[in-house]
């Protein structure tokens, strides 16, 4: 959360609250590089012109919109700036609405808003007033060159800016073939309700759910990086598995021993910083 990704202001009636925007959700995907199999060279992308087949430097690249097959309208940076919707770097609050009046499908991505020093008081005021009203603010937001619609919600001590989809981005479900509310036997309904009851929890605990694919992939990568093949997949019977593991353990103990004698006194790679008290 070190760097603000944007700074601007919330406009709310006559009040202006200078704020910074911070990422509130981070992707936790493993990222891979593409390599040439035979020599592990990194694969590079080159921008090549389809007419003369030669690489093109950035300063010779322009943007074009294909309005008809093979026909382009060229747009320059100035053109983009011209239609730039009052690039005021602002969160302009338009209206307030109760949160459950907004379909959750509209919410896209949350960001934290942090006030600057001058904005703290007004920020707290807006937060507390929102929390008390059970409503959220709907705002028009300009970030860099794009305009968005967003909701501003109080969550804990923070105001959260949640970017929303435009109405035309939401795909209607009426193109799907869905059953209506034709007669459902009461008995089956009862069973369905009972099933829901027995599987209900009081609180949603997201930390209960882990990304197994991600974890296992990471475990495999760690094992490979440590120069070891993974113990074979789960299918083997328990007993031979223990025998396999015994070998792995013996190897790993041996490796630890070797590491100990190699690395005696060598500082670990972590850097530690200690400041003395003022």
């Amino acid at each position: 959360m070190a760097h603000a990704i944007w700074s601007g202001a919330i406009n709310f009636g006559l009040v202006t609250i200078p704020v910074k925007l911070f990422t509130a959700v981070k992707a936790d995907d493993l990222s891979f590089n593409m390599l040439h199999k035979k020599d592990e060279g990194r694969i590079k992308y080159e921008r090549v012109c389809s007419v003369d087949g030669k690489p093109v430097p950035w300063d010779e690249i322009v943007k074009g919109y294909e309005y008809e097959k093979g026909q382009y309208v060229l747009l320059t940076d100035e053109d983009f700036a011209k239609v730039n919707p009052e690039a005021t770097q602002s969160v302009d609050i338009v209206e307030f609405v109760e949160l459950d009046k907004i379909s959750p499908m509209f919410f896209d991505k949350p960001y934290y808003l942090e006030p600057t020093k001058q904005g703290r008081h007004a920020y707290a005021l807006l937060r507390e007033a929102l929390a008390g009203s059970n409503r959220v603010a709907i705002a028009r937001v300009v970030i860099r060159t794009k305009e968005y619609i967003a909701a501003v919600k109080p969550i804990g001590d923070a105001l959260v800016l949640e970017l929303m989809h435009w109405a035309n981005e939401i795909v209607a479900s009426d193109t799907l073939d869905l059953p209506g509310t034709e007669k459902l036997p009461e008995k089956e309904m009862q069973m369905a309700r009972m099933l829901i009851d027995t599987m209900s929890v009081d609180e949603f605990e997201p930390q209960k759910f882990s990304n197994n694919y991600h974890d296992q992939l990471l475990a495999m990568i760690e094992a490979r990086a440590a120069g070891k093949e993974l113990p074979k997949a789960k299918k083997a019977p328990a007993r031979s598995k223990v025998v396999n593991l015994m070998d792995v353990l013996a190897q790993s103990l041996e490796a630890s021993k070797k590491r100990r004698s190699d690395a005696n006194g060598k500082p670990a790679e972590a850097k530690r910083r200690k400041k003395t008290a003022a």
């Binding site: 223990v242 353990l249 103990l253 630890s256 590491r259 100990r260």
Partner: peptide
């Protein structure tokens, strides 16, 4: 001191499986 995560993990797995 001196054991790796690998060692601790594999050891725990052996005990757990048994």
């Amino acid at each position: 001191a001196g054991y790796s995560y690998e060692t601790a993990k594999v050891f725990a797995e052996i005990v757990a499986r048994h």
